[in-house]
């Protein structure tokens, strides 16, 4: 069965992926592979994964998100998770998952601003 591909947009040096469908395991793994390939191809300095439409983050997806952040970090790309619903954030903590290496911002706009600041501070310049 073919898995649903999540579109990955590029704006200047930042990649943005917004998850709009319930990810089953195979499509989640596909998403991770696609993201890492796009980071490599585009040399993006930042990545935003927007979870506004995601209503369940279990330990499988939680692990996937921290893996994406850790692997992107090794390639010099900062990752910001945006739009985490309050119920999802509460559930993640109760489940016992902390997401190390993962920065979060309230929404896409704040996430972009956060990445711009970080990239500037690290002296790489924006754009």
């Amino acid at each position: 069965m073919e898995s649903l591909r999540i579109p990955i947009l590029k704006i200047e040096n930042v990649l943005i992926a917004s998850i709009q469908v319930a990810l089953h395991d195979a499509s989640a793994v596909q998403f991770k592979d696609d993201l890492l390939q796009r980071i490599y191809d585009t040399k993006a300095r930042g990545l935003i994964v927007d979870l506004t439409a995601v209503d369940v983050v279990d330990s499988f997806i939680g692990r996937l998100i921290s893996d994406i952040a850790a692997m992107a970090g090794l390639m010099g790309t900062r990752v910001v998770i945006t739009g985490l619903q309050p119920a999802v954030a509460i559930t993640l903590v109760e489940l016992g998952l902390e997401l190390p290496h993962v920065l979060t911002a309230l929404n896409l706009e704040k996430g972009l601003a956060m990445l711009r600041r970080q990239v500037e501070e690290s002296g790489d310049g924006a754009g």
Partner: peptide, 17 residues
């Protein structure tokens, strides 16, 4: 409520997996 719905859905996701 919304938070309990998320708790229940997440627990089921773990057990079904």
């Amino acid at each position: 409520g919304a938070i309990d719905q998320a708790r229940i859905a997440t627990a089921v996701s773990e057990l079904a997996r």
